[in-house]
Design a protein around this nucleic acid. Structure first.
Length: 458
RNA sequence: UCCUCGGUAGCUCAGUCGGUAGAGCAGGUGACUGUUAAUCACCCUGUCGGCGGUUCGAGUCCGUCCCGGGGAGCCA
């Protein structure tokens, strides 16, 4: 395969023959020559192509090139005499592979608003910033698998179509092969494909627990679906979630893995996507690089829920909803604790059992659960996790209290009947991680094809 | 879903007291031997989100619906 622009930019120029295929970002006609900035998506910087009138199609095609055209360039890699780039390509042949009518091509050689780009999700990956997001996203994806593999984790492919509702995780999309008329019958799902109601997964946790209790350290990482009518900058109806699950692990071990993971992932982007981070530092989020440095510099801050409530009540700061033990923390509370009290990622632990789902392990105080949330500046909750209740009687009690049918979850209870072991895990919102690392404020701009209430264009 | 602010040229926006709309950028044509969001000159650009109402007259006022931003709830 031909070397990509990312490699060519690092190659010492010696008039060697090269071939480049990509898209025109800008084209400047300066009298007797054209400067064409070509990108192939491999990196942020484009490759400058010099086209002179000796090209056979100079007047007919080259001078008319515009943003978005697909081109193939054959030429020689030379040292650039001007500032701005070390190397450039002296074109010997330039073929227009696909034109892009500048009268109607939506992308211009100027900055566009993210709202406008969101309306053309099929073209926005061609822009500098969305191209950079895509590369960082891919880097983070790879780093997740690499890190967990290094730590001895096994990846489990948990089902996308599921019949078990991970209570507390949100509304499920129903999956059915029935037509709308059949759905109006009294008990429609008995006639449905699976003979019972099925839906798109809201979490792979319960199935991950199965493999944690056979393989020790496992993770599931895939698309997750929530049919919530959430209209915020940090929720999607379809998103990616990483869920590690570890046997013989308590909440302390759970937090240690989550913290080490986040630090490693941030480091991977810092060393492999430095250009992209600089772009976001300059144009998206001033202070981003410093914020990421702060992640590495010291251990994450930690406090219990009870301490958090106390800190909020004695802070002297006025909140729209005053903190009160027993109520969940409000967004304003989380922001204050994380951004102003801690000034770095913060882990809040041991929430009241009444505001947490049935599977979280009851603490010895009988009032709190072994839960932990990792809050990060600018985003809020990045990770939610817990030690799971491994004691059969206590789990059954919690399930009955939550009004769940124990028969439905008999397989889950079997895990406690046979060879039960302490285990813990967490869920990390992948898009929120991409938001945190890039400083991009709206989650719709870190997802290639965001799905939100009323919007799923392509 | 609730609160709030918006929707005017391809994009970003201005538009006063109700009197049939304007700027920058982009685009077009030309000039220019090294440009970096090139520069300079000239030119083009409108269902003022949709529907209904008030009025002699609505981009402007009223109602309603749609779409978007910010905040909240739910959570990753």
């Amino acid at each position: 395969m031909l070397p990509r622009i990312k490699e060519l930019l690092r190659t010492a120029p010696s008039e060697q023959a090269v071939e480049v295929q990509g898209w025109v970002r800008t084209c400047r006609d300066s009298g007797s020559l054209c400067f064409i900035d070509v990108t192939d998506g491999s990196c942020l910087a484009g490759l400058q192509v010099i086209a002179e009138p000796n090209l056979s199609n100079y007047e007919s095609e080259v001078r008319r090139l515009s943003t978005g055209c697909a081109v193939k360039v054959c030429g020689r890699l030379t040292a650039s005499p001007a500032k701005g780039q070390a190397v450039e390509v002296q074109a010997e042949r330039l073929t227009v592979v696909g034109s892009a009518d500048p009268e109607i091509y939506p992308l211009q050689k100027k900055r566009h608003s993210v709202e406008f780009l969101r309306s053309i999700s099929h073209l926005r990956p061609r822009t500098n910033s969305f191209g950079a997001v895509a590369r960082i996203r891919s880097e983070l994806n790879f780093a997740i698998h690499r890190f967990l593999r290094e730590q001895g984790f096994l990846q489990v492919h948990t089902p996308i179509i599921t019949t078990s509702d991970c209570e507390g995780a949100g509304e499920m999309f129903t999956v059915t092969s029935l037509n709308p008329e059949q759905l109006r019958t009294p008990e429609p799902f008995k006639q449905d494909f699976f003979g019972r109601r099925a839906g798109l997964t809201v979490s792979g946790q319960l199935q991950a627990e199965i493999f944690a209790l056979s393989h020790g350290r496992v993770y599931t990482f895939g698309p997750t679906f929530r049919a919530e009518n959430s209209n915020t900058a940090r929720h999607l109806a379809e998103f990616w979630m990483l869920e590690p699950e570890m046997a013989f692990c308590d909440l302390t071990g759970d937090m240690a893995v989550a913290e080490a993971l986040i630090k490693d992932l941030v480091a991977a982007v810092q060393s492999n996507c430095a250009e992209e981070l600089e772009l976001f530092e300059r144009f998206v989020s001033k202070g981003l690089l410093q914020k990421l440095e702060a992640v590495q510099a010291q251990p994450f801050a930690r406090m219990t829920y009870t301490e958090a409530v106390e800190a909020l009540r004695t802070s002297g700061k006025k909140f729209e909803f005053p903190a009160q033990w027993g109520n969940d923390l409000q967004s304003e509370h989380e922001r204050f604790l994380c951004e102003e009290v801690a000034g770095r990622p913060l882990i809040v632990t041991d929430y009241p059992k009444t505001i947490k789902p049935f599977y979280m392990r009851l603490n010895d105080d009988g009032a709190t659960a072994a839960a932990m949330d990792i809050l990060v500046p600018g985003i809020g909750e990045l990770v939610g996790g817990s030690q799971r209740e491994e004691r059969l009687e206590l789990l059954e009690e919690r399930m009955r209290a939550a009004g769940l049918d124990l028969e439905e979850y008999s397989w889950y209870l079997d895990l406690r009947r046979f060879g039960s072991a302490p285990h813990a895990g967490f869920g990390l919102g992948f898009e929120r991680l991409v938001q945190f690392v890039t400083g991009i404020s709206n989650i719709r701009d870190v997802m290639p094809f965001p799905r939100t209430p009323g919007s799923a264009p392509c």
